[in-house]
Design a protein around this nucleic acid. Structure first.
Lengths: 132, 132
DNA sequence: TAACGTTTGTTATAATATAACATATTTGAG
DNA sequence: CTCAAATATGTTATATTATAACAAACGTTA
């Protein structure tokens, strides 16, 4: 096991908010939520987000410019991410499917480029929204 | 075959620039490049981009907020996109691999959500950059 | 304890994207 | 044809997302 990651104050505050959230959070919405804790500037949020991403604690949903907590414990350093995104309610689910992950990690581009990392985003309408 | 898409003036101008480019273009860089043609405002660019994306003529590279021309002729309406991105030179290549596309289009989430669309971005260092 | 790396705080500004409204142009049904 | 609807344009303003740059504090650890 790698050495335990100790989070700094701001990193912990930001991570807490993201973990408590039911869906992806935007940087400025995080900011508004932590102003009572003395964090006043976007930089402070973005710096914490950057570190948390590096550590694999959170992921960025690129199509939404939003951030979610990593739920897959084995996702050490987020080189292989896949998400399921509802286009109606904006819900995001991290997909941890070994087969999928292996398939994509082993995928090789015809043109010979070796991949270090991928990000996959699926879109659709979730069960809950279909009922409504 | 669906009816031929006729592009409006601005759409054509924007598409031309993107097609001529060697790599992904950002919206504001497109804007600066077309000011001589009488396009002055971001809105005009973003509106054209939106339509071109709808038509499947271009794709957005979400991780870069940039736009590339669609090279795969059979990519009617861009429900299944995959890209190879060099982290060094920023080169982007559209991947058209039938197997990959079928595999992902047929992928079903355990939680029962039916996907309509996906976007996959691979990252690495391209051959050319490896040499340098 | 001094030197180094990391984190913090802060102000300012850059880069990306949309709102809202007025007008013009194209298209298609009657 | 011709009017109505849909689409596209032009324009000003503003919202949203993200980074630059600099100074100070904190925490290792040699």
């Amino acid at each position: 096991m790698a050495q335990a990651q100790t989070l700094s104050r701001n990193q912990q505050i930001v991570l807490d908010i993201i973990e408590k959230a039911k869906g992806p959070l935007k940087a400025y919405s995080i900011l508004f939520n932590v102003q009572k804790k003395g964090i006043n500037a976007p930089q402070q949020i973005y710096r914490a987000l950057d570190k948390l991403i590096e550590m694999g604690k959170i992921h960025k949903i690129e199509s939404k410019n939003a951030f979610v907590a990593c739920r897959s414990s084995d996702c050490e350093i987020s080189k292989a991410t896949a998400f399921s995104i509802c286009e109606s309610c904006e819900m995001v689910d991290e997909i941890s499917d070994t087969k999928l992950s292996k398939y994509l990690s082993g995928f090789n581009h015809k043109k010979g480029m070796k991949f270090k990392r991928f990000n996959l985003e699926f879109f659709g309408i979730c069960k809950k929204c279909k009922k409504d």
